[in-house]
């Protein structure tokens, strides 16, 4: 059963008092849950959060399923999100995403066998002038080529394994 850490609980309590309405805390708290639950929000995590926040689980679930930055199923340690909207599409983003998938032998949206990589095509990330680009974790990687993208991922893989 997923449980927030003591620090996580403190975070939730602070957020509950931060805004004019308790409900506003749902979005930030879901980020916290995702962070502590290994990159995704499970149904039991929703129930747990509902208990901690004292907010109906359905209200939390509605938010969870509305926003794309919350993962509703597990993802790899490196969640490679390749923007594939217009300007990026014009600049080879879809080919880039396919290249990364092929390289790590993983289907879009699934986790590679080593548990490291998930590749998804996402909608506009507001980096159209530096297309193609990808987001891994919180960071943007821009003006990519097939080679430079793989380089970035390999680098992150190394760092992630060393930790």
């Amino acid at each position: 059963m997923f449980q927030l850490s003591p620090a996580g609980i403190d975070f939730v309590k602070t957020e509950l008092n931060r805004y004019e309405t308790k409900r506003s805390a749902i979005l930030p708290c879901l980020y916290k849950v995702q962070e502590e639950n290994g990159g995704w929000v499970s149904p039991e995590a929703v129930n747990h959060l509902a208990d901690v926040m004292d907010i109906p689980a359905a209200h939390i679930n509605e938010v969870l399923y509305f926003y794309t930055m919350y993962n509703k199923k597990p993802v790899g340690r490196l969640h490679v999100q390749v923007c594939a909207t217009i300007s990026c599409a014009m600049n080879g983003a879809r080919e880039l995403a396919k290249h990364i998938c092929d390289k790590y032998q993983v289907k879009e949206g699934e986790i590679s066998d080593d548990g490291m990589v998930t590749v998804t095509k996402v909608e506009c990330l507001g980096s159209c002038g530096t297309a193609p680009m990808m987001q891994i974790g919180n960071a943007y990687y821009e003006n990519l080529t097939k080679e430079s993208a793989i380089e970035v991922i390999e680098d992150l893989k190394k760092k992630s394994t060393n930790q």
Binding site: Y19, L27, Y31, T68, M69, E123
Partner: peptide, 10 residues
């Protein structure tokens, strides 16, 4: 003043 973060919805 405060910052509020969205979570991915156009």
């Amino acid at each position: 003043m405060d910052v509020y973060c969205g979570a991915g919805a156009y």
